[in-house]
Simulated assay, not measured.
Amino acid sequence: MAGSLLSRYLDAETLGRVADRTIEPRGMVLGNLAGAHKSPLCGFAVEFASHREYVLGDDVRHIDWRLYYKRDRYFIKQYEMETNFVAHLILDISASMRYGDGLEQKLAYAAQLATTLGYSIVRQNDKVSLATFDNRVRGSIPAGNSMSQIIRMARHLDECDAVDKTDMASCLSQLNSRFARREIIMIFSDFLTDVESLEPVLQRMRYNNHEVVLFHVLHHHEVAFDFTGMVKFKGLELPEEYLTQTEDVRREYLAAFNEYLENFKQMCLRNRIEHIVMDTRIPVAETLIDYLNRRSLVKAIR
């Protein structure tokens, strides 16, 4: 049962291609387990960070005797601690995510992407949680770092039904209040929402020192508007229908879409938020490998 459920969201070939990849936080993180990522806290392990003056009660084993002979004062060596990180995966399951067929459906694509990332995070012994929302928070799986966590995530995704409108700003604000500080928040959505109302919520996440990653999942029709002839468009979140000659509206649509996308990118730049635009026509494996390559390159440069 679990195997057949996981096969809907995890592809063996994709997992094979990302098996040797790790996901590293770009800033310092706070966790409650020993792990492989830098913590802003200092202790007595791993990598030297700084000195501080000795105070009564400090362990004399950590005195820097070389510094004592130079300055005739006692100093304690401090080291950077290593910890695990927590990644919160937040998936938009509003009705607009239902657009597309098969694995090119936006919701199916985002669900597979989120589950694969969750698997990779758990495999490196870090924690992952999952939350879904439309006009309210529909469900959440608390953070965990066992492989059974991925089964719980897949089971929850399998129960999701994209039928309602979205209230993204309110839902993200509610979820943000549940998170600690210095964690990773990954949001999977088509972001067909009011950018002005969304920005303050994302700013609060950044204020709490979270690393925020937005996976902007779009169908190829939305990106290219490659329709021909007379087409009837039916609203997924609104009851309206429009019958139109696509050649007559293509230029205006693409101009409006590109303006929206540019405004969205600028909002992300202002708030130092990572923004990845994804076309569901491109296989999840290709998209994920490209993202992990770019992420590791930025880390190497820094």
Results as ranks from 00 to 15, higher is better:
Asn263Ala: 06
Asn125Cys: 07
Ala285Gly: 02
Val231Asp: 05
Cys42Ala: 13
Ile76Gly: 04
Tyr79Ile: 13
Ala19Ile: 02
Ala95Trp: 10
Ala300Ser: 15
Val249Gln: 07
Glu262Thr: 11
Ile90Lys: 03
Leu107Ala: 14
Glu80Phe: 15
Arg272Gly: 01
Leu41Ala: 10
Gln245Lys: 07
Ser50Arg: 13
Tyr253Ser: 03
Leu130Ser: 11
Arg206Ser: 08
Leu236Val: 06
Asp101Phe: 12
Ala19Met: 05
Leu172Pro: 01
Arg71Met: 12
Ile121Glu: 12
Ser148Pro: 00
Tyr9Lys: 12
Arg61Thr: 08
Tyr79Thr: 12
Gly43Lys: 03
Asn293Asp: 15
Phe233Ser: 01
Ile150Trp: 02
Arg272Val: 07
Phe233Asp: 03
Ala12Tyr: 13
Phe225Asn: 08
Leu117Trp: 08
Val86Asp: 07
Leu172Val: 02
Ser140Arg: 14
Gly144Asp: 12
Val46His: 15
Ser170Ile: 08
Phe188His: 00
Asp134Val: 06
Asn293Lys: 15
Ser197Glu: 14
Arg206Val: 10
Glu240Phe: 12
Leu214Ala: 05
Gly118Ile: 07
Leu10Trp: 09
Ile273Asn: 11
Leu202Glu: 14
Tyr109Lys: 00
Phe233Gln: 04
Phe48Gly: 13
Asn176Cys: 09
Ile141Phe: 01
Ile93Met: 11
Phe264His: 05
Ala255Pro: 00
Tyr119Cys: 11
Ser177Glu: 12
Lys106Phe: 06
Arg206His: 10
Glu13Leu: 14
Thr246Gly: 06
Ala45Cys: 05
Asp20Tyr: 06
Asp161Pro: 00
Val29His: 02
Glu13Ser: 15
Gln78Glu: 15
Val213Asn: 02
Leu261Lys: 11
Arg98Cys: 03
Ala95Asp: 05
Val18Thr: 11
Glu47Phe: 00
Leu117Thr: 14
Asn84Ile: 02
Tyr79Val: 09
Met168Ala: 04
Tyr242Leu: 12
Asn145Glu: 12
Asp134Ala: 15
Leu56His: 11
